[in-house]
């Protein structure tokens, strides 16, 4: 996980695309919540995938809407985490 584009790919893989809904290309500014792309399961799957695929541990206190509104917002959080948070 070295860039916001990598993060977009990871998020895209966790979205359950609805029937008749074609998987869209996520950009850093895609409004994930406003567009209704993330449900509670997808959010927890992203948290899990960040840990298992990139060794990034999000503290519970950071799993809030403000950090998941777009890939860019989540990337900003990841970059701000103290070095010890990644393994």
């Amino acid at each position: 996980m070295t860039s916001v584009e990598d993060l977009c790919t990871l998020i895209s893989g966790q979205i359950t695309w609805g029937r008749g809904q074609s998987p869209q290309q996520l950009t850093p500014d895609t409004m994930l919540l406003e567009m209704g792309l993330l449900d509670s399961l997808a959010i927890m799957q992203i948290v899990t995938a960040l840990n298992s695929q990139a060794g990034i541990v999000l503290p519970d206190t950071e799993i809030v809407a403000a950090n998941f509104r777009s890939p860019a917002a989540l990337w900003k959080l990841i970059e701000s985490l103290p070095a010890g948070a990644t393994q």
């Binding site: 993330l38 449900d39 959010i43 799993i63 809030v64 809407a65």
Partner: peptide, 9 residues
């Protein structure tokens, strides 16, 4: 609506 999936919010 957007807060519903975030228990801490």
């Amino acid at each position: 609506d957007v807060l519903r999936a975030f228990p801490r919010d």
